[in-house]
């Protein structure tokens, strides 16, 4: 059988890299076109803020709409009255009690109760917020903190991920992520439990 025999015949002198690439070249089919993404198919005229809030709740998070950024600290105080070790990377918030820099040992963040991080924008279809390393200095912060607050502007909500990738196409690429809700698992008999390894709650403040 031809189809069962033609695999890699590994040449002893050739590196795995070259032998793999050679085999791919020999075995791949004729070039097929890369399709264009036609956004008209996916676009909808819907209320972005309302949809976003609904999606945040659906993924297990909580969304709060603030009239002014000056309300931020009062709102946080009301939600997390017992938080002591707090890192804030949002310049409008004076709530931070622990300051971090690029040199902070990520392990030392193990005791952080609350992190307040500036998000860049939200995605209406799935309630995700894009945050990048520039917004939180130490990569592990949004995961290791017990509770997480993300702050976004109400004008910074896009419809779907296609638009989201347009918004981040020009970024400096180091590390960044979409966060949608608190960490969760359903690995024990499919029962949803909020709070697996990452933050046990997520609040998105929309200003």
């Amino acid at each position: 059988m031809v189809i069962l025999m033609s695999g890699i015949k590994k040449d002893k002198k050739m590196s795995s890299r070259d032998s793999i690439l050679k085999a791919v070249k020999n075995n791949k089919p004729e070039l097929l076109p890369l399709p264009e993404i036609d956004l008209d198919v996916f676009n909808e005229d819907i209320n972005l803020l309302e949809t976003f809030i609904k999606s945040v709740e659906l993924v297990g998070g909580r969304a709060k709409v603030l009239n002014s950024i000056s309300d931020l600290d009062n709102e946080i105080k009301a939600l997390y009255p017992n938080a002591k070790q707090i890192v804030s990377s949002v310049k409008e918030s004076d709530f931070g009690t622990v300051s971090i820099s690029k040199d902070t040992d990520p392990h030392s963040l193990e005791t952080i109760d609350l992190a307040i991080i500036q998000g860049e924008f939200g995605v209406a279809e799935n309630g995700a917020v894009w945050i990048s390393e520039n917004d939180f200095s130490i990569r592990v912060l949004p995961f290791i903190t017990n509770d997480l607050i993300l702050v976004i502007s109400k004008d910074a909500i896009c419809l779907h991920l296609h638009d989201a990738y347009k918004l981040i196409s020009k970024r400096e690429r180091t590390f960044g992520l979409f966060v949608a809700g608190p960490s969760k698992t359903a690995d024990i008999e499919q029962c949803l439990v909020i709070g697996a390894h990452g933050a046990v709650s997520l609040t998105v403040m929309v200003v």
Partner: peptide, 18 residues
């Protein structure tokens, strides 16, 4: 996969941390 809108974390790794 699970009927979720998106996974909680979709992490984009481009460069190693310092």
């Amino acid at each position: 996969a699970t009927g979720q809108l998106i996974t909680t974390y979709s992490s984009h790794f481009n460069k190693p941390a310092p």
